[in-house]
Structures are given as structure tokens and as C-alpha cells.
Computed example of a mutant assay.
Amino acid sequence: MPTPPVTGPLCTRGSLAEDLRELGVRPGETLLVHSSLKSLGWVCGGPVAVVQAFLDTLGETGTLVVPAHSGDNSDPAHWRRPPVPEEWWKEIRAAMPAYDPLTTPSRGVGVIPEAVRTWPGALRSAHPQTSFAAIGPGAARITRGHALDCLLGERSPLARLEDADARVLLLGAGYDSCTSFHLAEYRVPGPRAEASFAATTPEGRRWMTIRDTSITSERFDELGADFERDKPEEVVRGTVGAAACRLFPVREAVAYAERWLPIHRPREE
């Protein structure tokens, strides 16, 4: 098979920073980024250049935040892509490495968050499944205090981002990736669910099962489209490289979701 030609445009650290400024990313702000590297085009320097462009744009007083989730640290009984034999479950639960913010890789959130997670000076929150990583002067405040029994609620970085008047950037990603909407799920009536993972405790490694608000991104794409339609003044649209982007405040997105979810996606407690 012949090698397919590369797909542009050509993006560099400098061109990406220029595009981010043109979009409206401001020096000194706190920015939560959901991203797709391939959506940008051909990036000279890959995810490292993208992170550098964000840091150039945010400046020394700005804080870059990304999801650094590790959903594979979970109960194998629920694995579907792919499933594993039931006779393996007990051994997997016993052998799963405990979450370590320094060494546990992120999974399912793209390569840009992994570059942020491993960046010199980056900090990462403590939840074994739904951590966030951050670079900048606000990183400690955003990442500290992430409770083991609170995946994405009031004791997670999402609430700290709301308090900090942070904005969300969907960089080539859809509203179904918008973790901020999950914070609204904690503020409307809904069911609870169990989550299991290997955690590090003062007593050492422990396999834990906690109960927390049941979260799902079901219909988040519709929620986002309605938010953009009803609150066009809150959503900045544009492109970075070839990536379609949405830039909006965490606080306004969560408030809208709190009103939208009980009407359009009611759930039994």
C-alpha cells in the first residue's frame, strides 16, 4: 500500500499560539482544555509543541488544566472494550497497580493531556480514575483535595475551576467531551453508583469500592448544542490550525446544564 500524503495545515508552536490568541485565549486565565491532536493538522513537534503554544499564550500567570483520567483502573467486571474472562477478575483486582499521580498514565483523553501530565512542574489530582493535571500558578489550588468518593463533583477540580472563573476550550473535541457538564449532574437529583479502583492509602495499596453520583455523558452533545444556541454570547467559536473550537466559561456551562438536565434527561434516584 502506498503511504498516504500528510494532511495539513502545517502547525507550529508559533502558529498555534497565534491562533489561540486570535480565538480569545487570554494571558493569566485558567483554561481547561479537551483536545484532539489530529484535528489540528500536521503539528511540527506534536503534543509538546501544542503544550508550549498554550503556555506561551497563557503566560507565566496563566494555568493550563487537562483531564488526566485513568479509567482502566476499574473493576474488570465492567470492561467491554474488550472484556476479559470472568476467571481473571479476582486476580486483576488483586494485582492492579495502585494509582500514582506521577506514574499512572492517562487513558482515553488523547496525547496532549499525557504531555501535560508529564510536563516538568505539573501537578495532578488524587482520584484514581478521574484526575486532572495542571501547569501554572493555580495548579495546586485546582488539583488539591480531590476526594476518592467524588469523581467529578464538589470535591473535584471541576468545582475549583468553577470557583476560579476558568474557561473551557474544546479543541477539535465535541461537547460530549465536556467534563464540566458532569458537575451539574451532582446538583440535580439522580441515581448513585459504585466505582472500584486500586488506591494508595496510608495503610498501603487497597482495592476500594465507593458510592458516588452516577455520571454519564449521554446527550451531552445535545446539551452543548442547546447551550450554544441559547447562550451564543457565552460561546466563542473559531479555529486553531484546522481544529474547530469552542471557548466558554465553566460557570455558565454548568449553570445551564443544571437547568437543562432535569428537563431533557431526567433520571430516577
Rank of each mutant, 00 (worst) to 15 (best):
H146W: 01
L102F: 05
Y175F: 10
A198E: 08
A147W: 01
P137E: 08
V168F: 03
R187M: 09
P128F: 12
D149M: 04
H146S: 01
W119G: 03
I142D: 05
L183C: 13
L151T: 13
A140T: 14
G136T: 08
A115K: 03
P157V: 06
G138I: 06
G145L: 01
D165F: 02
A140E: 15
H127F: 01
G121L: 02
A193C: 13
A139L: 03
E162L: 14
V168M: 03
A133I: 11
T130V: 10
L161G: 07
L148K: 12
S180G: 06
L161R: 12
H127Y: 04
G136C: 08
V109K: 11
D100M: 00
I135V: 15
V109M: 15
E114D: 15
A147N: 02
L169P: 05
D100P: 03
D163Q: 15
Y175T: 05
P101G: 03
A134Y: 00
A140M: 14
R144Y: 10
A122Q: 10
R167Q: 04
R167H: 04
F197E: 05
R141F: 14
P113W: 04
T103H: 12
V116R: 02
E114N: 15
D165C: 09
Q129V: 05
F197N: 03
L148W: 09
T179Q: 06
H127M: 05
L161I: 06
